[in-house]
């Protein structure tokens, strides 16, 4: 733990690192900041609801991971396909999912986008290109490659992006998918949110490879390692990968270094890391970084306070709406088994 950044700001030397430079205008960054704060507050509210026993099952928040989602949403088209892991609230909200319906879904309430049947681990909204978070580690990755294959078969220029954690790299189907995606030059972006823990186990204890982005080099795939907490860096990397994909140049693997400030799931005992480690990371986390960026560019603090106050109100209203929302009709238990 000698290196305080835990790599967040010092990716390894031989990786093609995108330099953090002002690539987005302040007017572009402001809505991104707003959205990032909204995601943060939605997730913090969900954790509170979980603690109070209103949310059952497993709920995984992405507090600290928001940089990847926000940078991606700015870099891709609205109709580009996206699949992600069960830690997927942030991607969905960043792409425009209604927070009200999102919270309803986690609570299993009728106005949820999946009528409360999917819950926290299955966020999706096909109208926003959100083709599904997934409860099985890695399972969503071939789905995105298949969507990219569909684009290729149809001759369309919609691309696909899929998000997964560092833990997913050790599932066999990931490597099957990397191989086929590269061989067939599929328009897909593999985005690894490396928070350095496979659930509760640090990857240093399980991985035979130190640098995750190097895995796919064996398949001849373009692969970079970036600071996943800097929205501009993420934006630039995803935009470039998207350009390559649309040009028919094939997939790109992006390893975005990040850090999960929250537990693996609500109720995680977090015995595997120290509170000092978490505190260290707070200096590098995406919301702090983006806030500082805006201040450095001369945005008055009171403007940001105002923005956050608006979001607080919106999230509070969404939580209240969801708590009051009705349960699904019991007949829903039997519908949607088959498309009729």
């Amino acid at each position: 733990m000698a290196e305080p950044s835990l790599k967040a700001s010092v990716p390894s030397a031989d990786a093609a690192v995108t330099e953090s430079a002002a690539v987005l205008a302040t007017e572009q960054l402001l809505p991104m900041y707003r959205m990032m704060f909204l995601i943060r507050r939605v997730e913090e509210s969900l954790l509170e609801l979980a603690e109070s026993g209103k949310i059952g099952g497993a709920m995984h928040t992405a507090i600290g991971h928001e940089g990847a989602a926000i940078g991606m949403a700015a870099a891709l088209r609205k109709d580009d396909y996206l699949t992600c892991t069960y830690r997927g609230h942030h991607h969905s909200l960043a792409r425009g999912m209604d927070p009200q319906r999102a919270i309803c879904e986690v609570l299993g309430k009728a106005p949820g986008f999946a009528k409360g049947k999917g819950g926290s681990m299955h966020f999706l909204d096909p109208s926003l290109g959100l083709m599904g978070a997934n409860g099985i580690v890695g399972a969503q990755v071939p789905h995105a490659a298949g969507m990219a294959l569909a684009s290729k078969i149809r001759g369309e220029d919609r691309i696909a992006i899929t998000f997964f954690g560092d833990g997913a790299l050790y599932q066999g189907l990931m490597h099957e998918t990397f191989n086929m995606a590269q061989k067939w030059k599929l328009p897909v972006i593999f985005y690894c949110e490396n928070n350095r823990y496979s659930e509760m186990t640090p990857i240093s204890r399980t991985s035979s490879v130190d640098e995750i982005y190097q895995f796919v080099r064996a398949y001849g795939m373009e692969s970079i390692q970036i600071d996943g907490n800097d929205v501009e860096v993420v934006y630039e990397a995803v935009a470039k990968a998207a350009e390559r994909a649309r040009a028919g140049e094939g997939p790109t693997f992006i390893e975005g270094i990040t850090y999960r400030l929250s537990g693996h799931m609500a109720g995680d005992l977090e015995t595997y890391r120290s509170s000092e480690e978490i505190e260290m990371q707070r200096a590098y986390e995406p919301l702090t970084q983006l806030h500082q960026k805006l201040i450095d560019r001369g945005v008055p603090e009171e403007d940001l306070n105002q923005l956050r106050a608006e979001v607080e109100e919106e999230v509070q209203a969404a939580v209240e709406y969801a708590l009051e929302a009705p349960w699904p009709d019991l007949a829903e238990a039997y519908t949607d088994v088959y498309q009729v």
Partner: peptide
């Protein structure tokens, strides 16, 4: 290739769209 998990998963993805 002989990658049943991978190509079955890709077929599922293609069918989803």
């Amino acid at each position: 290739p002989i990658s049943e998990q991978g190509f079955m998963g890709m077929a599922v993805g293609a069918a989803m769209v």
